[in-house]
Design a protein around this nucleic acid. Sequence first.
DNA 1: TGGTAGAGGCTTTTT
DNA 2: GCCTCTACCA
Length: 751
Amino acid sequence: MADATMQHDPLAGLNERQREAVTAIDGPVLVIAGAGSGKTRVLTERIAHLLRDHGVAPWEILAFTFTNKAAREMKARLERSCPGALEALWVGTFHATGVRILRRHGGASGVGRDFSIYDADDSLGVVKQILSDHVMDAQVARSPRALRDRISRYKNDLVTPEQVLESARNRIDEKIALLYREYERTLRRNNALDFDDLIARVVELFATSDEARAAYARRFHYILVDEFQDTNPIQMAMIDGLSSHHRNLFVVGDDDQSIYSWRGARVRHILEFEDLYAGTRVIRLEQNYRSTQTILDAANQVIAHNVGRKGKNLWTDGERGERIGLIASMDEEGEAVNVLQVVRELVEGGVKLRDIAVLYRTNAQSRSLEDVLKMGSLPYQIVGGVRFYERTEVRDVLAYCKVLVNPADSVNLRRIINVPRRGIGKATAERLEALAAEKGTTVIDLVRAGAPEITGAAATRLAEFARLYAELERFAAQHVAPQVVERIVEATAYMRHLKEHTADHESRVENVEEFISAAHAFAESAEDKSLRAFLEEVALVADIDAVDLESGQLTLMTLHNAKGLEFDAVIVTGLEEGLLPHYNSIDDAEAVEEERRLFYVGMTRAREHLYLSWANMRRRLGQIEGGIPSRFLHEVPDACLAHPLGSMVRATSGGRGMLDFGGDEPAAQVHPDYESMSQEVGAAGATPRAAGASGTAPSYRVGMRIRHRSYGGGVVRRVEGSGEHTRVTVIFDSGGERKFLAQFAPMRPTR
DNA sequence: TGGTAGAGGCTTTTT
DNA sequence: GCCTCTACCA
């Protein structure tokens, strides 16, 4: 063991508190880990310490992370510090771990081992199907989405349909309880589990079979939980079922970073952990290794406005650092242009593009940023928004896969039975479903059996579909995931369907191709290359899992997605009343505190440079609304700001125009003199500012020949807008057509 | 049964 | 402002 320690000492380079956390082996431990205090490191080193210095076997350890990405990274780090034998170590999200347990315990969870995993969209399909099959109160049926969310909340709070029914106070509540019950039945009939079930069924399994529970509790001697502040009751029940026996439960979290209460997470779990687990050792990590003192001071001051917290104060040995920049803009487009300008200045100042993040409260805010970025030449990646696997064309192909793996899946069968169109209309589909219900069989079995009740033209078409399905089924039985996916696309002539029936078929075809590539990529790395395994991976991936922070691109994402990440420079945008804090939270003191935590999470992502941005006007749902600078801005001490907030607010409140910051200033500073800034504002319409200090952008005319740094020569086809909003559409000699923002595009006229 | 146009909802955040 | 669903007609 001495040798092992020589190779890698898990305790080297840790501070006293971190060391204490790593070496507190037995019994419950609660680590309150402030932002940037090295909690990931503590978690990994603790596992390494258990493995190397305490003779713990890898299969005795179970660690829960918040994302698959975090799990992957933790495993990679461990592979470096203690190579080998990590196969047996369980590190994953609650959902992924739930699936692992449920696949092993097949029937115990009320579904077969080959169950489908329903995502939010599938669940919504179930709710809609129930609403259309059963005549429901108009009031109940109004919002299927809200109903689905409500069912999800019930499940996360361990509330059964029966309990909802008992506590129902009116007819509507009763109807909802019945709908919830029917939803659960439908899922079982379809041999499907939704996201919440992946954890709920494990809890149920533990409750009904003490044998199963004890087997896991005995196996996993050491349980670790990351991001503990974001666990919800059902996850807590799972943790408790696994650890109540030996009580070797190590949880790490930060009550100030609890931002998932809407998903049922309870800060209570961290605040009351000591009461739940008697004899808990509490360790606080408050030394921050990430941010400058200025950023920490600002974040500390902001979060101090919250009442419901344990209280902590982050400090650092490091530099005071530069002050926080403010970006005030006229509207969201101006904000986007200013943000791009600041990014350019940062890059000129030596910050790498991949170390810069632009954060926002809602996905919708990414649009204006993206519009501007598209026309510039900065490579960027957007995390989230319309998710890849939620696109119609991808879901269609996915639905074929799901039905092939689990033929009882009537929701997805309904999706594909007439896609591409094959003349099996709504009437026939509903007839089949009614027949199946009547006979106590499944739709697919009726299709396979040829359903004698269906006659005429519909019968012929149904027979054709049955033939197609049988062929795919035969093929799927003998081939791996990528081959099956390709076969589906081919046999259904899906690409032709896209070309004939959709307007934007080019990008749709690309998406389907990307889906096929994803299947190939999966098959290259996965051990189990089956379609079922592929579907499982697809179901559990989150957008953030795919983010490549090494890719050299600027990253745009929501504040929620930024949790756990860090960047040299962070720009938090949309700091306006109504956006941050959001409208839906503004009237509720507790909800506002969560919004403040969200802001706090955003601020503490930054290592050196932090910018806060707001706009005076913003389009929301097609309406233009006035933006009042967020109350949170006023909570940042003036001493931390590069400019007094008051002057910046006054400068923009008249709505005179977009503020422009001088390109000659060092990266961290906004324009030093707001008076001169205002003058520039007045002139902004006439003379666009070029990026950096290179003077004004060239003026473009239609027909002019240009040369672009990346795309080469081309001809100007259109010129729109004026001043810094000027957009130029260029047809390149290489064939492509592109649109640029004149002031930023690296191109010039050639004659 | 399939195509189209208009209405209506949505957007807070996601495993 | 955009997407999805519904109603109605061919």
